[in-house]
Simulated assay, not measured.
Amino acid sequence: MALSENGAAMVGNIENLVTLTSGQYTTGSLILMVSYGAHFAFILYFLMTSMQLAPRYRIVPVLSAIVMASAGLSLLREFSTWQAAYEFAGGVYTPLADGETFTNAYRYGNWTITVPILLTQLPIAFALSRPDLHKRALRMSIPALLMIWTGLYGQFGETGDFSRLNIWGVISTLFFVWLIIEVRGVISAAIANSPPSLVAWPKNIWWYFLATWGLYPIAYALPQLGFNGDVVVVRQLLFSIADISTKLIYGVILSRYVLRRSALEGYVPAAEALETSPLGSKIASARGD
């Protein structure tokens, strides 16, 4: 389906061109609801986790809590827009209800805020020196923002201008490759800087990063498979799985890493939090507990 430039600009995303069955609409609603609910639910988890860590690492889960709040608000806005943009009539859900349009642009706006934070967490968690931390955080954030903004511009071609979608998708991917190179540099520094018992963590985080961030370009390109309800729902599912994986689960992984690192560095509350940790038992015995 081809649209004029003005028409494509008006509807923005394919959600505004597709009539959904009751099942598809409900599934999309549940995906968005679970997504924002999960992010909001973990704000308290990360704040509580920060209390168990050595002072130098507390900022890691605190930043995750900030990410949870920002992402949760963005996804709540997506959910509200989803509800407002569809009207139930004749047994199906029709888009552009009362002139309201649905947009995925809120996701890109949120990524602009949260992605630099997520990337900055890495060198902090891996205890890189302050000058190296600042340098590497900046070098990761620049390609990340360029990746997001070029992807935002390109995604407005998904309603029919696939040349725009693909050209800017390729440009965005080039920035993603640049980002991967910078992240790999941080991982390499982390491997060299991690205690021997934790050296596997940055290696596993590296593969986790590739697997989860790789979901976004798939969701970006998905509209080319056709303008139908299944594509709409699957794309929202991929976006949401990616968001939960790269923000929430990623935050949990980093929090568990810095908890272990805090314990190995002799911080007693962290060692005690690791109930089955030999180090925790050793410290407790030394204290006479």
Rank of each mutant, 00 (worst) to 15 (best):
N16R: 00
Q236I: 09
Y216L: 08
G37S: 03
Y57L: 06
G226D: 00
L174S: 09
S163G: 06
F40L: 12
I244S: 07
G151I: 03
L146I: 07
R260Q: 14
L165E: 02
G280P: 01
F46K: 01
L225I: 13
G229T: 12
L179H: 04
I43L: 07
F175Y: 12
L222K: 00
D98W: 05
V186T: 14
R256Q: 14
R235E: 04
S4K: 03
Y86K: 00
L20Y: 06
E15D: 15
G7Q: 15
Q121S: 08
V183T: 12
A8H: 04
Y36T: 02
F176D: 04
V18A: 03
T26Y: 09
S141D: 04
L63P: 01
Y93E: 08
F175R: 00
I148H: 01
D230F: 15
E275C: 10
G185D: 03
Y86S: 00
N13C: 12
V115G: 00
A270Y: 05
W82M: 08
P196Y: 11
P217L: 00
W168F: 14
G23Q: 14
R77Q: 08
M10F: 14
L174T: 06
L63W: 11
Y208R: 03
M68I: 06
A89M: 12
V92L: 11
A125W: 07
I142F: 05
V177T: 06
G229Q: 11
W201T: 14
S29M: 14
F40I: 08
F209C: 10
E158M: 15
Q155K: 13
V177Y: 07
V252W: 14
L146E: 07
A144S: 11
F79R: 11
H39V: 04
G7F: 07
R287W: 12
A137T: 11
